[in-house]
């Protein structure tokens, strides 16, 4: 079991949930709880797959996946922001709709082999022992995922736009009184969440599996949702959580193959247990943890007067 191969497999397993979770984090930071991550991921998976097949370009595929995920999320956005429907129910319905809709448009793509997503060429950097394969031997989306996390972190922390987004999520009435367009800002956050979930889904159908199968997300969206909570809405903790989860999933499979004498039941539970445990521990400061959830999460905003 070589560590380089293991790390490569870890990153492939972690990237779909990393992308979906960072998108959902932004949505939730704006005060909106969208439980439709699974639905947006699977729609992204088929949109990305279909565009990649038709165009022959995985890059266009990922762009299509982001658009598809964002478009689906805007259905949720319109229903919850303009028609003031219940966010929990609408999110669940979005998942069901996404699963069915993707199955329908996916009919013609079953058993088709997608164009391979190439690894980026870093020239001689890739040949550095250990560091090369670990840092400089991945496909573009792996770096895009990290860049999105860094961007979200910097935006939330250092920019005015991030401040406004947080204000909307913490107290929408105050933000509204200050003249911010609460609904417009939330729609943008929802669309960003949808686009990221779409990218995560496409990573599954174009890189991790790579094929189209109905229902292929198989719960990854729910894991991404849980990750946001356990990461206490902190961008870098999403990376830790996703890599832990992906890493232990891959590691336990490899340990099984290697015939390590650890009970398999324990091994297969371990990704869930360890990820939750670690994230709970690093956010165990009660006083600060209670501040991390956006105060208006899931609440309906209706401008009075």
């Amino acid at each position: 079991m070589s560590p380089e191969l293991l790390i490569d497999a870890l990153i492939i397993a972690a990237t779909p949930i990393l992308l979906a979770a960072i998108g959902e984090l932004v949505t939730e930071k704006s005060g909106v709880l969208n439980l439709g991550v699974e639905g947006m991921m699977i729609v992204g998976a088929i949109c990305g797959f279909a565009v990649a097949i038709e165009s022959g370009s995985p890059a266009l595929g990922f762009a299509g996946a982001a658009l598809g995920g964002a478009a689906l999320s805007l259905i949720f956005g319109v229903l919850t922001q303009y028609l003031l429907s219940n966010q929990v129910a609408t999110g669940l319905a979005l998942t069901l709709f996404g699963l069915g809709f993707s199955a329908m448009i996916g009919q013609g793509y079953v058993g088709v082999v997608p164009p391979a997503t190439p690894k980026l060429d870093f020239g001689p950097l890739t040949d550095i022992p250990f560091v090369g394969p670990v840092l400089f031997n991945h496909d573009l989306m792996v770096y895009v995922g990290i860049a999105i996390v860094a961007g979200v972190w910097a935006t939330l922390r250092y920019t005015r736009a991030g401040m406004i987004l947080r204000a909307v999520g913490e107290n929408h009435d105050a933000a509204h009184a200050l003249g911010y367009k609460v609904i417009r800002i939330r729609l943008l956050a929802i669309a960003f969440g949808g686009a990221c979930a779409g990218l995560g889904g496409a990573y599954l159908s174009l890189v991790r599996v790579p094929q189209w199968t109905e229902g292929m997300t198989a719960g990854a969206g729910w894991i991404a949702l849980a990750l946001v909570v356990f990461a206490s809405w902190k961008p870098w903790r999403i990376v830790i959580g996703a890599w832990l989860f992906g890493g232990i999933t891959v590691l336990q499979l490899n340990l099984q193959v290697a015939g390590v004498k650890v009970p398999v039941e324990l091994l297969s539970m371990s990704p869930y247990l360890i990820t939750i445990l670690v994230l709970v521990l690093i956010s165990s400061d009660r006083r600060r943890a209670s501040l991390s959830a956006p105060a208006e999460l899931g609440r309906v905003f209706h401008a009075a007067g």
């Binding site: 497999a9 599954l204 199968t213 292929m216 198989a218 719960g219 999933t249 891959v250 490899n254």
Partner: peptide, 12 residues
């Protein structure tokens, strides 16, 4: 049924 995990297992 979990294509992602089945693929991971195959790769391992």
């Amino acid at each position: 049924f979990d294509p992602g995990k089945e693929a991971d297992a195959a790769r391992a």
